[in-house]
């Protein structure tokens, strides 16, 4: 799905559920990703020119936010 995104788009936001929403950033980021608790946000950047070049383990985790207790 990511690979097919329109090239004019620079940023996309995905909403969804676990376990996919922990597993996906974990697989995309080189460093893996912490468990996404409810309403957590993770931002990932890729050093690519085209969405089609995105590969597993190449993303960089820019920030990880989760709600305060």
């Amino acid at each position: 799905m990511l690979k097919k995104i329109d090239e004019d788009t620079n940023t996309i936001t995905l909403f969804g559920h676990n376990p996919a929403f922990t597993e996906m950033p974990d697989r995309l980021c080189k460093s893996g990703c912490e468990f996404l608790t409810k309403t957590s946000i993770v931002c990932i950047s890729f050093p690519v020119n085209s969405w089609s070049e995105i590969k597993l383990d190449t993303g960089k985790q820019e920030y990880f936010l989760k709600p305060e207790k």
Partner: peptide, 10 residues
Amino acid sequence: TNLKITNEVQ
């Protein structure tokens, strides 16, 4: 502490 491993150990 590699998350890819520790997440899966969890």
